[in-house]
Every structure is written in structure tokens, then in C-alpha cells.
């Protein structure tokens, strides 16, 4: 098993890492397969994600996909962000080893969960 250079780049220098002050939405998810944990924070303005940050405990793929998903959602309309799938994140990273695909699910789920948290807070169904 080897990670792509892009995965290693995001692992080495994760983008948008850390906790966010007063986020508009928070997604907290755990990976039932291996027990990893990801938290994704978003700031939303006019239905658009203006900022995203994350904290992750997990393998190289988990950290890299977390980093990548925060990059991908910034500037996206919520409805477009909801269309981001785990395989799109994996693809953006130049692919993941097959036994590591489940790690990218964490990123997708964290994003979905952060958006629904935002909508719940706003009372949007």
C-alpha cells in the first residue's frame, strides 16, 4: 500500500486545520470500521460556505481527506456542497488505496452532518 504524492502532501501540510471559533455548523462523525474521529466546522453566509476547518484523529488517508474536503467546500453553495461524495474527495487526492476508501466516507459524512447542523440551528428543514 502506498499513498499518492497528493495524499502525502495533504497529510504533511493539512489545510484549514484546527478548531473554529463560533462555527455556524459542526459535523462530528466517527468511523465505525477503525474507530477514527473527525470534526468539521463551517461558516455560512448567504447559503454559501465561506470557511471550513477540521480536526481529525486517524490514519494518513483520514487526515488527507479531511484536509481536501475543507478545500473543496470553501466557496460552495450548500446545495452544491451536499453533492460532494467521498469518491470525489478521493479522486481529488489522486486516488486512495482500496482498503483506505472507507476513510474518505468520514469526510463526506462530516460534511453532510455539518450542513444539517447548520440547517437545524437555522430552523431550515
Amino acid at each position: 500500500m502506498a499513498y499518492s504524492e497528493k495524499v502525502m502532501d495533504h497529510f504533511r501540510n493539512p489545510r484549514n486545520v484546527g478548531e473554529m471559533k463560533d462555527p455556524d455548523g459542526v459535523g462530528k462523525v466517527g468511523n465505525p470500521v477503525c474507530g477514527d474521529i473527525m470534526e468539521l466546522y463551517i461558516k455560512v453566509k448567504d447559503d454559501t460556505i465561506v470557511d471550513a476547518k477540521f480536526q481529525t484523529l486517524g490514519c494518513g488517508a483520514a487526515i488527507a481527506t479531511s484536509s481536501m474536503v475543507t478545500e473543496m467546500v470553501k466557496g460552495q453553495k450548500l446545495e452544491d456542497a451536499l453533492k460532494i461524495s467521498n469518491s470525489m474527495v478521493a479522486e481529488a487526492l489522486g486516488g486512495l488505496p482500496s482498503q483506505k476508501m472507507h476513510c474518505s466516507v468520514l469526510a463526506e459524512e462530516a460534511l453532510q452532518s455539518a450542513i444539517s447542523d447548520y440547517r437545524n440551528k437555522k430552523g431550515i428543514k
Partner: peptide, 8 residues
């Protein structure tokens, strides 16, 4: 640890 949610 600096970006581990459980450490936070």
C-alpha cells in the same frame, strides 16, 4: 495532537 479532536 494539535488537530486531534479528542485531545482538544
Amino acid at each position: 495532537r494539535s488537530f486531534s479532536p479528542i485531545y482538544k
